[in-house]
């Protein structure tokens, strides 16, 4: 044993991942993941988007422990202060530290975006894949429903739902999800239509696979990549809608540090204290951009036509 040179664990992991042939299912899956990862980080823009998002998540998780201020604690003696060493991004009209509020707001924004993705993605995927594969009356009913939803601009639709459900973050999430799943369903259906006649679906049918199994294990994995890409690209829109609802006073309610609500309240002071509106605005822009870049990169990685 002693004559084998000691290889660092990291090196051998790399070898394991890059071995020309896999010798276990785990290794095969890890290798497939590794190759996708290599392609993703080879794409500079996608990498940049990913880094921004990772930083943002890290900030949302640990940021609040780093700042001495509370997002809600008012200090009327320190109103509308410009950025300084004490308040890096200044204070708002009630003397609250804006950086602190942005950090706490990141939690709200990310939580909303992820919740919407977690609700709308699977619903859209399930409805679309099922409709595309089964066809017939299920397809007709599901797609007419989608048409109805798509005939309204999503913000207007979300507004209508929130108006009916009442303002608040939970209701905003439900409202945005309701307006976000139909385009995903339509996309998934288009993908499902292209594969339903393929030989590998026919082959699986000859193995006795039920429709349920075919949809879950064969059609959905084919639709999944484009749905993931679409949801990632939609994240920007979801965040903007969430911010828009907050801005209109229908999402998060004051004094919650939601970015859209912050933007709305900063609007009154735009001419005198620009940082009130610019900071949440920039945060929204940065996150939307990061999601878009990542989505573009994912499209290149996940699209099987690029293999």
């Amino acid at each position: 044993m002693t004559d084998t040179p000691a290889t660092p664990a990291r090196q051998s992991l790399r070898d394991w991942l890059q071995a020309p042939t896999a010798s276990s299912p785990r290794q095969a899956r890890a290798q497939a993941f590794w190759r996708g990862w290599q392609r993703l980080i080879a794409n500079r823009a996608a990498l940049a988007g990913l880094i921004v998002l990772v930083l943002l998540v890290a900030m949302a998780v640990i940021g609040p422990y780093l700042t001495p201020y509370s997002p809600l604690q008012q200090d009327l003696t320190a109103r509308l202060q410009p950025p300084s060493a004490q308040h890096w991004l200044g204070t708002d009209d009630l003397g609250r530290d804006i950086l602190t509020r942005i950090l706490y707001g990141a939690r709200i924004t990310l939580m909303m975006a992820l919740l919407v993705a977690a609700i709308a993605g699977p619903i859209g995927l399930a409805v679309g894949a099922t409709a595309g594969y089964l066809g017939g009356w299920f397809d007709i009913v599901a797609m007419r429903l989608v048409d109805v939803f798509l005939s309204f601009p999503s913000l207007i639709l979300a507004l209508a739902f929130v108006a009916a459900l009442g303002p608040g973050i939970e209701n905003a999430v439900i409202a945005i999800s309701l307006s976000a799943w139909p385009p995903i369903a339509r996309l998934a259906r288009a993908e499902a239509l292209t594969v339903r006649k393929s030989d590998y679906i026919a082959a699986a049918r000859l193995q006795g696979a039920s429709s349920m199994r075919l949809i879950l294990k064969h059609v959905m994995p084919i639709c999944l990549p484009s749905v993931v890409v679409r949801v990632t690209l939609n994240m920007a829109g979801i965040i903007l809608t969430a911010a828009g609802l907050g801005f209109l006073g229908l999402g998060a309610q004051p004094p919650s540090p939601e970015w859209g609500a912050m933007l709305a309240s900063g609007r009154q002071f735009m001419l005198t204290s620009w940082w009130l509106a610019a900071t949440p605005g920039a945060a929204i822009m940065l996150v939307s951009l990061a999601f878009n870049l990542l989505g573009d990169g994912l499209r290149d990685v996940l699209d099987p036509r690029n293999d």
């Binding site: 393929s198 026919a202 082959a203």
Partner: peptide, 27 residues
């Protein structure tokens, strides 16, 4: 059972061969 013409189209592109072969055994 049947074997299809196009070997490029008759295997699910995103499933490991093991998963494809496991399917009838599971069913």
């Amino acid at each position: 059972q049947m074997v299809f013409q196009d070997p490029y189209g008759s295997l699910h592109p995103r499933r490991m061969i093991r998963a494809t072969l496991m399917e009838p055994l599971e069913i």
